[in-house]
Design a protein around this nucleic acid. Structure first.
Length: 800
DNA sequence: CAGTGAGCGAGCTTCCGCTTGACTT
């Protein structure tokens, strides 16, 4: 039996550390927190100094009982959870729950998982820091009070099952306010002048721009006109050295941002893949706010850089964390072994590893050096100069391995090209000949909508949320229906281009698409409704600076300068008063808007949030004639929908004709426009206007879809016509009546027998359940739900 | 998957942070 039991938070960490410590140490994991507040409303007694009721959640029971047993047998228990607020609290909960003895318990901390760091930590044990524990309790209790008092207000004043909290509500607010900024935004047009020159002697071309833009088309045209007769020469030539430095190695937030931009991963996907890399021992811990590298890592990186690229590519760098509220219990995210430039694994794992490796290696490399050339070009007929810039890389430095991408939208690519182009050799006074020149109308751009990753970045800047909660928070606000991540089509916009052609200024009208979005965060009507309600009644809680303010107080508690219950009392008094006041006096939240009067019936047209989401209604509920309803579509919101758009919603569904003696109807559903024919649905191809579909077109669409369905089928089994192999979105699968059957990995699809199908179908209980649900869903939906709730009721009663 | 469009009545929903599987699609 081991003399010492050492407890850390993560099992992967435990395995590594066990290797560093001899057989005298048994290293186990607590799997994070082992205790939490009970889930009921009586978890905190606000009348009695915020006394808490804790319990071991059911999924932690076995962990706790095992640790309890091992602790009893050990001579010494070492609590080695992370050195931050939460880590200290985990140690304290372990101490309490495992009923440890003071003289048999030691608390140690380390920031990096290396043998020397751990050995030296063991040399310097300490006691549990109760100031830090109290700071955590204050945090935990405050979050519970806020969440569990605010949410029920929403149930009563908005709609059941909604939620609010210190973190999620601010995340939603950011998205709602950004959307409003975009709606308010009015683009300003200006004309940008770009010229193409050739040097007198060679045929080498380069681009130059006018540094300022013209607001009026006439002024831009005048400039072009003046250039027709002008002569051009180099007025001045300036060369300046420039440097670019690498970024710090990844934290959770920067990893999520880069993986989103470069690999197109959602933040949840990034964390899943990183978790696998961590468990495989490929990278250090992936939930961290630290940019710090251990000395061993810095040395290993140096060795790898010198080996692979040479001495001059290396530069030792130490990075400082900038973000608010960083607790830095871990290292930055880096490869465990810098010598492994790439790894085995699936595609996602390989790509994410490579990103992490490059970023960490680059962070210890030298600057890239450039020579930046700026040439001013005199226009004989005008006072202002055109400017050409070029950049030559003198030394690639860290760019040899890593180039960070930026958040900039790729819309308006014509604005960006030519920025870092090469210039031909030029001399001062040299004459140039103009090859082409144009003035293009450009528009100012509204602030960018958030992506999942840029929202995380913003939250981190505000000090809201932690590395372990960024991804879950993003999921929560989507699951609650406050925001959606989706693509939206842009709209067409005309812009003017003036060019010089045959000694004349020509004007041309071109078209571009603007405002198209891919995978962006949009608020929903319910998100807007809840946000506005919270802003009206609880502005101080969902203020961007609320977290920063309470964090400062948590820090004071952690320093021992403040008493945690006193802090909570100061907060809770006014907060609870606000809750009661709102419950008693506030109106039900509503965004109802009257858009106008229906010309056909003379009845009012209103938009509001209904039981199944946002809708337009013609007429009132108490009218003799029943009101007519229509759901809003993707991209439409109560706040911004126009009367015309609202009325258009009533033009569908529309009969378009007959096919095979059955009616065809065009309508728009949750997933876009479709044709309904018999019992089948056929999506309309992109770009087809559902209002304009003719009978012939509809028939064509149905025929094409049927043909495609036939092509999807690879094989039909002779034994059973309901069994067939199909090409699905994720590869081949088997359709067996209503059940979808997965084909085991590595199977030769051509050799699958009907017996195989039955065998696999039988061995897949989930698939069976899904099929049963599908079959029964239609008829018994209502009955099933009532049954479910009564069943629940009895079990909860039985428990009590 | 998709067109709907609340009220006689019981109990449920909900927070943030720390961890990993056990789940479903």
């Amino acid at each position: 039996m081991a003399k010492n039991l050492l407890i850390v938070e993560s099992p992967a960490k435990a395995k590594t550390i066990e290797g560093y410590l001899g057989k005298d140490f048994l290293v186990k994991s607590s799997y994070g927190h082992i205790r939490d507040l009970v889930k009921t409303d009586d978890a905190i007694d606000t009348e009695d100094n915020f006394k808490q009721k804790y319990e071991v959640p059911s999924d932690k029971k076995s962990v706790v009982s095992e640790l309890k047993k091992l602790a009893k047998e050990a001579e010494m228990v070492w609590l080695a959870s992370d050195e931050d607020r939460e880590g200290e609290a985990i140690s304290w909960h372990l101490y309490e729950t495992l009923a440890l003895k003071d003289d048999k318990t030691k608390r140690i901390v380390f920031h990096e998982i290396t043998k020397p760091a751990i050995l030296s930590a063991i040399e310097k044990p300490r006691k549990i820091d109760f100031n830090l524990v109290n700071a955590q309790q204050a945090r935990r209790v405050l979050d519970r009070l806020v969440g569990f008092e605010l949410s029920p207000v929403l149930w009563k004043k908005v709609k059941p099952s909604l939620s609010a909290g210190r973190v999620q509500s601010v995340a939603v607010r950011l998205i709602v306010e950004r959307e409003r900024e975009i709606n308010r935004f009015e683009a300003e047009a200006s004309y940008k002048i770009v010229a193409q020159f050739t040097t007198g002697k060679g045929r080498e071309q380069f681009k130059a721009e006018l540094p300022h833009r013209f607001e009026r088309k006439e002024d831009a045209a005048q400039f072009l006109n003046d250039c027709i007769q002008a002569s051009f020469s180099i007025a001045s030539l300036e060369k300046k050295p420039a440097k670019r430095s690498p970024s710090a190695p990844f934290t959770t937030s920067t990893l999520q941002q880069e993986a989103s931009r470069k690999l197109g991963f959602s933040v949840a996907r990034t964390m899943q893949v990183a978790q696998r890399l961590y468990e495989a021992g490929r990278i250090t811990y992936m939930r961290t706010d630290s940019v710090n590298l251990s000395d061993t890592a810095i040395n290993a990186a140096e060795q790898e850089i010198v080996n692979a690229y040479g001495e001059k590519y290396h530069k030792l760098r130490r990075y400082k964390t900038k973000s608010a509220g960083a607790q830095e219990a871990h290292e930055a995210i880096r490869p465990t072994y810098f010598s492994e430039h790439s790894i085995d694994g699936d595609n996602a794992e390989r790509r994410l590893y490579e990103l992490i490796w490059k970023r960490a290696i680059a962070s210890q490399m030298s600057e890239a050096e450039f020579e930046k050339t700026t040439a001013k070009i005199d226009v004989s007929t005008r006072s202002e100069d055109l400017v050409a810039t070029g950049e030559i890389m003198k030394f690639d430095g860290f760019l040899k391995v890593y180039m960070e991408s930026s958040d900039d939208d790729s819309e308006n690519t014509q604005d960006q090209e030519g920025d870092n182009a090469l210039l031909p050799p030029l001399e001062k006074g040299q004459a140039l000949s103009l090859k082409a020149m144009n003035a293009t109308q450009r528009f100012s751009r509204p602030p960018a909508r958030y992506t999942e990753a840029s929202l995380v970045k913003k939250l981190e800047e505000l000090g809201i949320g932690r590395p372990s909660t960024y991804a879950p928070t993003i999921s929560t606000i989507q699951n609650r229906g406050y925001v959606v991540k989706e693509d939206r089509d842009g709209r067409e916009r005309h812009y003017t281009v003036l060019t010089i052609s045959e000694q004349q200024v020509l004007e041309e009208l071109k078209t571009e698409t603007t405002g198209a979005e891919r995978s962006k965060m949009f608020p929903t009507d319910i998100g807007v409704l809840v946000n506005d309600f919270l802003v009206e009644h609880f502005n101080d809680i969902i203020d961007y600076h609320f977290t920063a303010k309470v964090e400062k107080e948590f820090d004071e508690i952690a320093q021992g300068d403040k008493e945690w219950t006193a802090m909570l009392k100061d907060f809770y008094g006014p907060f609870h008063h606000g809750i009661q006041d709102t419950l008693e006096n506030a109106d039900r939240a509503s965004h109802e808007r009257e858009l106008g009067v229906d010309p056909a019936s003379g009845k009012p047209v209103t938009v509001r949030v209904g039981r199944f989401g946002p809708l337009v209604q013609i007429g009132a509920a108490d009218d003799e004639e029943k009101p007519r309803f229509a759901s809003l579509r993707k991209g439409q919101m109560i706040e911004t929908i126009s009367f015309e758009e609202a009325m258009d919603l009533f033009k569908l569904p529309k009969k378009v004709g007959e096919f095979e003696e059955k009616e065809m109807t065009v309508a728009i559903g949750r997933f876009g426009p479709y044709i309904r024919h018999a019992s089948a649905f056929y999506s309309l191809p992109k770009g087809v206007d559902p209002m304009e579909v003719s009978e012939d077109e509809a028939i064509q669409i149905i025929k094409e879809k049927r043909q495609k369905d036939i092509e999807k089928v690879i094989r039909v089994f002779e034994e059973n016509a309901e069994a067939q192999i199909e090409n699905g979105r994720w590869g081949p699968f088997i359709r067996l009546g209503k059940q979808n059957v997965k084909i085991p990995k590595g199977t030769d699809v051509d050799k699958i027998t009907y017996e195989d199908v039955l065998k696999w179908a039988d061995a897949d209980p989930k698939g069976k359940a899904a099929a049963a649900k599908k079959a029964g869903a239609k008829a018994t939906t209502k009955k099933a739900t009532t049954k479910k709730t009564t069943a629940k009721k009895t079990t909860t009663k039985a428990k009590k």
